[in-house]
Structures are given as C-alpha cells and as structure tokens.
Design a protein around this nucleic acid. Structure first.
Length: 421
RNA sequence: GGAGGGAUGGCCGAGUGGUUAAAGGCGACGGGCUGUAAACCCGUUCUCUUUCGAGUACACAGGUUCAAAUCCUGUUCCCUCCA
C-alpha cells in the first residue's frame, strides 16, 4: 500500500485535479469525505465504479467515507456534461432508486465494526424541509452571478441552446450539500469525476464564505477507452452493476474483452491490486499477451467484488463451456443452467418438425428467413456445436440434446437456446 | 414579412425521365487471421422466395408519361440570406 491516499490515487492515475492544500490536509490525519451519486436509475452502471472505488480507498486509508445519494438533486438534474435538459423524476421513483444504491454500496464499504465506518446520506433529508426563501437568503447570497455564469457547464449549455433556471440552480444545491455535511459531519473533502469540478469548487466557496472554513476537493479523470469513447457503454447499452439489468455473464465478458491497454489501466482503476502486484502482472502480460492475464485478473476481481465469489464461479464455468469446451458433453439440464442468461425461444413438437430457419427466428437470432438463410450461407451458424451449411434442415435432423434442447450459436460468441417440447 | 436552398436506405451522401432495389463511405452483421484482442482481408446488409422471380421503397398527397427518386401541383418539415 502507498503511504497516503493521495499517493495511492496518484500511482493509479486517479488524481486529475485538487484544490490547493488538499494533499496537505489529507496527510494531517483522518478526514471525512463524500462523493455524490446520481439516483436517476435504481442501479449504478460501471461508470459509477470509479467514485465507489474512491470511497473504498478513503476507507482503507483511515478516512471516513460518506456516500451521498442525490434524492433532491436528482429531481433537478446536473447540467454538467449534459447537452439537454433532463426529465425530472418523481419522488417515489427516486426513493426506490436510492434504496438500490444503498444496497450496492454495502458490497464495497464497511458500514460498521470499524473505527471509520462508511455512511450513506440522502440530500433529500435536508432539502425537503428547506424553504425556497431560506435558500435564496442564506445560500444564494453567497453566489455571485458572474461566477455562476462563468462555470464551464453553464457556458456550454447556454451556447448549446439554453438552460432552464432549474438546472442552472443545480450547483447551488450541490454546494449546499457540502456545507450541510461540513456542519453535520465535519466533512472537509468532496471527491468526484472531473466533470464535477465546477460543482465542487462552488461547494468549497460556499463553505468558505458562509462558515469561514477551508474545505477541499479532489477530482478523478473521466474514464474513457483508448479511442476516447465514454466508458461502460456497449452497443447493448450501459453495463449495469445489478444482475437484473446486466447479467453477471455479460458483466464478466465486458471486462474480459477489454483491450490490452485498457485492461491494464482498468486494473489500476477498478481493483485493489497493489503497485507491486500490478508491475508483476504488467510484465507478465507484456511478455505473453495472448494469455490475457490482465483481462482475466480484471474480470475476476471486479466480478467478485460486484457479484460475489459464487457467481464468479458460475460465470467462469459457463465461459469454459462456451469457449473451448464441448457442449454436447453437458446434459440438457446443465446446458439450461449455463445458458440461463441467453435469449431463449420455444417451438412446439408438431407432426412435421419445424425448420431451422423458423427456429432462428423463434430465438430472436434473426428477423427474417432471408436474413437467416444468408447467415447460414455465410457460415455464421452452429447448432449444438456443429456448423450448419444447409438452411433446409428440420429440427429433427439436427440431433436435439435429450430430444428437446438446441443451443444455437451466431458468430463466435452469441448463443441462443431453443426448447423444443 | 421578402428571397433562395433542401428532404434519398440505420447514418452520411451520389443520382435530375428508362440496364436504379438506387454509386460510394460509415455503421452493423457474418467469415478468415488471432488471444473470445487490435489492425488487416473477404462477404452480407428492404421483405417474401432454394433459383427464377414477386412485392414494397427515395418527406406526405395527388398529377403528367408507355415509363418518375428524377417533371408538375398542393401539404408538412428543415436550412441559408435579407428586413
């Protein structure tokens, strides 16, 4: 372990910017720090993993981490990094989302049994009872218009077509969070992604002006892949942390399929790998890149932390069966277990067996028979591990497993399951 | 308010009466190579049809013509310039 939190963040490449004196402040002793999470969905996606890891690092270095869920700010919408005005969520939806986030954070942080237990707060608790008049009088007074208009997030939105008063006010709310946590918890540090810099400094300003205290901000880089695209988005959409939204199998595969460069970077970002172990792994990876040890390490580590060791085990067994293993060595029941996350279709056993083309449509592999035919012609389809070249085949000619199950494969890694019973 | 330009397949973009289901690019999908990678190479990419072929399609609604994405009229939407 590095000597201090800042050193730790630095070698991991997680230190993007910090307010003046932040590093000194952190080295003086344990501090209380917070990071905000946006509850616009009931699950966080992998993009939120970085701030979560930041809380974890805080706790490891003896600081007290506070996770703040924006029950109130989520109703407003942060204009940072957004090009459009957001839809507002109702209170009930938000409450549900907050609960989901609480459950998730519990997997990463210790909430009791140690000297610096993590805390979770919801800013709706203090914004709910607060009146508009109070905000304008006590908080708004400390915000010069010129400073607000000068914020990058505001400028970009104004020139991109406008911003509503509601979202314009967002920074005031986030700043007030900091003030509130400073007063009630002695919180002196806010962390976040670099897109939060404007909001964070709004907070340190507010605390300085209204409580006459020096508090700090530390921001982390935004995670992008090697080609600069936003991290965590795939063609199927975001990669979520909850198993209901993104299956553990897909989750594991997401990490496993990272490029060499990204994998090494992400190990520093998303695992607790020590610097020594990292260097060992890195040189091993550079020497034998085809073994993809970095990807495997990354996928195992993150999947275990998010979904648990048991789930990792299951996912790895599926992976072994799918890549390199022999499907037909498994029983129908085992296959159903392995492919429980694959798209599944069903066809009835009729007098005349349905054709393969129909089956492909039934499991959602293709939209039309023409497309199915072309795919077979191109050599992109296997059934129960056997590559198909004849699109006229009927199901009874394709050796159903235990006379009722087909595993269809499209391309090299997309699987579909067909029940024929 | 005045003048002009435009709307083509998931996206960009050729095409101004007949070999145009519509060039080219991107994306997507499949194959090869490989490490379940990157790069690269090849193929496919409206629907139905084994093939032949048929149907639908170039903003929308009509019209001219043997024949229209292409010409005409109206409608809707977008853009640029002037005031």
């Amino acid at each position: 372990m590095a000597n201090t939190l800042v050193d730790e963040l630095r070698w991991r490449g997680l230190l993007f910017d910090q307010t003046e004196g932040a590093e000194a402040h952190l080295s003086e002793g344990p501090v209380t720090a917070y990071i905000g999470f946006d509850p616009t969905s009931d699950s966080l996606h992998v993009g939120s993993l970085l701030p979560i890891m930041a809380l974890v690092h805080l706790q490891r270095y003896g600081h007290t981490p506070i996770g703040l869920v924006g029950g109130a700010t989520g109703m407003i919408g942060d204009p940072s990094g957004k090009s459009k005005e957001r839809n507002l969520l109702d209170e009930k939806t938000l409450r549900g989302n907050v609960e989901g986030i609480r459950a998730l954070l519990a997997k990463f942080l210790k909430f009791d049994g140690i000297e610096n237990p993590a805390k979770l707060v919801n800013n709706y608790d203090w914004f709910g009872p607060l009146s508009f008049i109070e905000v304008l009088r006590d908080v708004g007074k400390h915000f010069p218009m010129s400073a607000m208009l000068g914020k990058e997030s505001v400028k970009r939105r104004v020139s991109a077509g406008g911003i509503s008063y509601t979202e314009f006010s967002y920074m005031i709310l986030q700043a007030y969070d900091f003030l509130q946590l400073y007063r009630s918890e002695g919180c002196t540090l806010q962390m976040g992604g670099s897109d939060q810099w404007g909001n964070i400094t709004a907070g340190t300003e507010l605390v300085r002006r209204s409580a006459d205290a020096k508090v700090h901000g530390v921001v982390m880089p935004l995670v992008t892949n090697a080609s600069g695209e936003k991290f965590g988005k795939t063609v199927d959409g975001a990669v979520w942390l909850s198993p209901e939204k993104t299956s553990p199998y897909k989750f594991y595969q997401f990490w496993l399929n990272q490029s060499d460069e990204n994998a090494l970077q992400y190990i520093k970002f998303f695992t607790l790998c020590t610097e020594e172990d990292y260097e060992t792994l890195r040189s091993a990876h550079l020497e034998t890149p085809h073994l993809r040890e970095a990807q495997k390490y990354l996928a195992r580590d993150v999947t275990t932390r998010v979904h648990g060791a048991e789930t990792l085990n299951r996912v790895e067994r599926s992976t072994a069966a799918l890549f390199g293993g022999d499907l037909t060595s498994l029983s129908a029941n085992e296959l159903e277990e392995v492919f429980q996350e694959a798209p599944t279709g069903q066809l009835p056993k009729t007098e005349e067996a349905p054709g393969l083309l129909e089956a492909m449509i039934a499991v959602g592999m293709t939209q039309s028979k023409g497309e199915a035919r072309r795919l077979i012609k191109g050599g992109g389809v296997s059934v129960n591990g056997v590559k198909i070249s004849d699109s006229q085949l009927k199901l009874d000619e394709l050796n159903p497993i235990e006379d009722r199950l087909f595993i269809l494969k499209k391309g090299s890694k997309k699987y579909f399951m067909l029940r024929w019973e």
